[in-house]
């Protein structure tokens, strides 16, 4: 049962990601991106991270996607302003590079998780920790061990906020 749900979410996120990078119309791309994010959020839930899954929906599918849509509407792009794709030979070369990446990165993954380590793991840690991924655990983790990082992130976001406003603001003439 879990495997089936996993497969559904996996196919959903991969397929819509491919749609994002192949379609031309930004609005369509954004819609596909929502689907991809939703699929990934489902995967997060399956990986016993319900809080993160919800955050994924709120931040990505909520805030970021809305931001994208707003900008698309604001720019009101015409066809000749959109850019499109690289030449075919470049795209083929990029695909080639991506395939190589996938292969190279898969080698250690497959080597590790199909060998004896995985068998041992299956025996010793078959069940996830009940507390993993619930809000309380994460909250305690953030506000104890990672308090400094948390504060720094808030500074970063403020800086980004101010920067974004400054950049997007219309310049005063003169």
């Amino acid at each position: 049962m879990t495997d089936t749900i996993f497969m559904v979410f996996a196919v959903m996120s991969i397929a819509s990601a491919i749609a994002v990078v192949t379609w031309r119309n930004p609005v369509h791309c954004v819609l596909a991106l929502i689907a991809s994010f939703a699929g990934v959020a489902g995967l997060f839930y399956l990986l016993s991270a319900p809080f993160i899954a919800v955050m994924q929906i709120i931040i990505y599918a909520g805030a970021i996607i809305v931001l994208f849509l707003f900008v698309i509407m604001l720019l009101n792009l015409k066809k000749n302003e959109m850019g499109g794709d690289a030449p075919v030979q470049d795209r083929l070369f990029t695909v080639f590079l991506c395939v190589i990446t996938v292969i190279i990165l898969s080698i250690p993954v497959v080597a590790t998780f199909t060998g004896t380590f995985y068998d041992q793991y299956k025996k010793t840690f078959p069940k996830p920790d009940a507390n993993l991924g619930i809000t309380e655990t994460i909250g305690q983790e953030i506000f104890s061990a990672h308090a400094l990082a948390f504060e720094l992130i808030s500074i970063l976001i403020i800086a980004a906020l101010i920067g974004a406003i400054y950049l997007a603001k219309k310049r005063q003439r003169g």
Binding site: A17, V21, V95
Partner: peptide
């Protein structure tokens, strides 16, 4: 997913995408 994203960054000429 990472590879697909990388393809998008390199092959797409639309900054939004």
């Amino acid at each position: 997913l990472f590879a697909i994203g990388a393809y998008g960054v390199i092959a797409k000429r639309n900054i939004l995408i």
